[in-house]
Design a protein around this nucleic acid. Structure first.
Lengths: 207, 207
DNA sequence: ACTTTGAATTGAATTCAATTCAATTTTCTG
DNA sequence: CAGAAAATTGAATTGAATTCAATTCAAAGT
């Protein structure tokens, strides 16, 4: 029975995941309100009721789809610890844009959730941002972990998110330039948040 | 009858506006889904049906509340044309933060699309951003209206929005420093978007 | 003052979609 | 194979949004 449970649960997990991937696609095409449980069930080729076996509610399904995308994103931007801080930062941004490009729909879903939405979705997004901020602070020796730096980094992430979203829609900047914008903004924002010269050494050192 | 029409319509508009203000308050406390038409009607002291006299639907009511807040925000950040460009920019940001502080709830509502963010709400936000970008370009002589500059400015607005939202919740930075961060970020982002030295003169001139 | 007209207002009736649940089938294990 | 647990279904329920026919109200013209 132990194995049964385990197998069953493994099969169940796979199915769950397939459903979440479907959710990603559906919710990035049409809005939450425009999609009914029946639509989802039909698209998945299962019954209405089975969806409730896997997910608490329609909203729960949406929430989990968002969480799924957020986890993917955070995981896919992890970078090798062997790189120098600045190179590592660039590598992280490149990986971020890779994700944005490859899973444009999932990324849009994630951010279309908006800056807030319902508390649970907001918490998921906040968690993803916090994970990225924590990683940057851990990796960038010249940024001390003070509240101003945190505020600056969170702001910077909003910039990255907003410009990335625009980028997949309009392609107004070449990819490399976009990364340059992110790098330049990161330093100037952190510097300004701390006060005039606190980071001057580090900032000019990088040039 | 001409006067009757006009009066009637004027009274109707006033009422509509009161309802929208109520909507602003309600929707920033609880989420769209958590508030029923009956809740709204009860809070307004009117009947369910009358709400449908003034607004197409529950969603329509929400959408118009958002539009109302967006218009307020854009209007309240207009600045006197008599100021020098940089001072004008600072004045605009100060006005922006004034709005954010005074109408924190409305501001939060604005940036929270709502579950799944329907296209109409997204369009309202996009429109508000575009209005602000257009104003900045019009007022800042050193920014030519090229696609890269537009992309940079839209990104910068996301930064401003995100940090402002954080700011009212956590107050990690003093107001003046926040404005400094915005100013510093604006130049470095625009500069980086254009390419290495295009704005160098203007950027250092401001210091 | 009186009638007409259209807007404001109501609440009961309808509709539509989410959720629940008891029953059935499938899948695994001993 | 028996029998338990999980997967799966669809009919029944529920709750909230929307519609609408009826009523009140306020202003305008006569």
């Amino acid at each position: 029975m132990a194995r049964a449970r385990k197998n069953a649960s493994k099969a169940g997990d796979r199915r769950r995941e397939q459903l979440l991937e479907l959710g990603l696609r559906l919710f990035s095409d049409r809005s939450f309100a425009d999609i009914s449980i029946d639509d989802i069930a039909a698209a998945a080729g299962i019954s209405r009721g089975l969806l409730y076996h896997y997910f608490r509610s329609k909203r729960g399904f949406y929430t989990e789809s968002v969480r799924y995308a957020a986890d993917q994103l955070v995981a896919s931007t992890d970078t090798p610890a062997t790189l120098e801080p600045e190179a590592r930062m660039r590598a992280g941004l490149a990986a971020y844009l890779d994700y944005v490009e490859r899973y444009a729909a999932a990324y849009a879903l994630l951010l279309r959730g908006g800056l807030g939405v319902d508390p649970e979705v907001a918490a998921i997004l906040e968690g993803a941002r916090e994970a990225i901020v924590a990683r940057i602070v851990r990796e960038a020796p010249e940024l001390e972990a003070s509240p101003p730096v945190h505020a600056a980094l969170r702001g910077w992430i909003h910039l990255v998110e907003g410009m990335s979203l625009d980028w997949i829609e309009r392609r107004e900047l070449p990819r490399e330039r976009l990364i340059e914008v992110f790098m330049a903004a990161l330093w100037s924002i952190a510097e300004a948040a701390l006060g005039d010269l606190a980071l001057a050494g580090a900032a000019s050192a990088r040039t």
